[in-house]
């Protein structure tokens, strides 16, 4: 059995930042493994450890900078990794879910996985649509926002819980092959061991350019484009307590007494 895990390196904004054009100035961005993908990786690695003959492959659309993040996955137990990138990406516009799904479809065709795990969303642009778009494109079944997974590979069924709103979970049986978008909390992601980190250095991490996956520049054309980015006007009118921690704490304490939620 083969599991493909999509892994994105996401950008996180520092507390103080400036916007340069259509994005936050890169000086104020920190790059890290997408929180949701961390859980997807762990889920795949646990399935591998519980079964025999399971291979876990990760795929990332991202520049060379992302390789450090990709190696984190390899250190946690991913067997090998694919990075999709091309000079053409530098001039490309917005990589919307459809564009990403087209790129990932080409990788799925070559790898023929039985199961694809993605995160529910990427923490930076929060589109939350790439996994299900991919499923529809490659004619896989799917399930979104999965927070429990019981795989019966012989029967070809994934029994999942989908986390709905308001503390309700939906129990669903999904035929394989399938794409599941994984929700945080489904497992406890491991830390990479020192040994894992060492081993990761020698695991395969292959670059696929557009040509290698049978696509050309046209694959990057998207009908969506970002036309502006700005800091929303604060709607808040909070009273901000100023001063040292002792001073602000004292003010807050008397507020709590005035409101009547603490005695005194």
């Amino acid at each position: 059995m083969k599991i493909l895990v999509t892994v994105k390196e996401v950008a996180e904004a520092e507390d103080d930042f400036d916007i340069a054009g259509l994005d936050i100035d890169e000086r104020y961005l920190e790059f890290d493994l997408n929180e949701w993908d961390e859980y997807a990786i762990e889920e795949a690695v646990q399935i591998k450890e519980d079964g025999d003959d399971v291979e876990v492959v990760s795929v990332t659309i991202g520049p060379e900078r992302a390789e450090e993040t990709i190696r984190m996955g390899l250190a946690k137990g991913v067997d090998r990794a694919i990075r999709v990138w091309d000079d053409a990406f530098e001039d490309a516009g917005m990589l919307d879910p459809k564009t990403k799904a087209d790129l990932l479809s080409a990788v799925v065709e070559a790898e023929e996985p039985d199961l694809v795990l993605t995160g529910v969303q990427a923490g930076d642009d929060s589109f939350g649509a790439t996994g299900v778009t991919l499923a529809e494109s490659i004619d896989f079944e799917w399930g979104a926002v999965v927070n429990a997974l019981d795989l019966d590979a012989d029967a070809g069924v994934a029994s999942v819980h989908r986390e709905l709103e308001g503390g309700i979970e939906e129990l669903t049986d999904i035929e394989l092959p399938a794409v599941l978008t994984i929700q945080t909390g489904i497992n406890e992601p491991r830390y990479a061991s020192l040994r894992g980190i060492r081993q990761a250095q020698s695991k395969p991490l292959d670059l696929h350019e557009l040509d290698d996956i049978g696509l050309d520049d046209e694959a990057l054309e998207s009908p969506l484009s970002r036309t502006a980015m700005y800091e929303p006007e604060s709607e808040g009118d909070a009273t901000v307590f100023e001063g040292s921690a002792e001073e602000t704490a004292t003010e807050l304490a008397s507020l709590l007494r005035d409101v009547g939620v603490v005695e005194g």
């Binding site: 879910p97 929060s126 778009t133 926002v145």
Partner: peptide, 24 residues
């Protein structure tokens, strides 16, 4: 709707119809 169920079918609808989707 960009609800949890919306996350589970909106992308599939857009992909089937081959129309762009903007979420949330």
């Amino acid at each position: 709707p960009n609800s949890v169920n919306g996350l589970d079918y909106a992308p599939a609808v857009a992909s089937t119809l081959d129309i762009p989707l903007v979420t949330d």
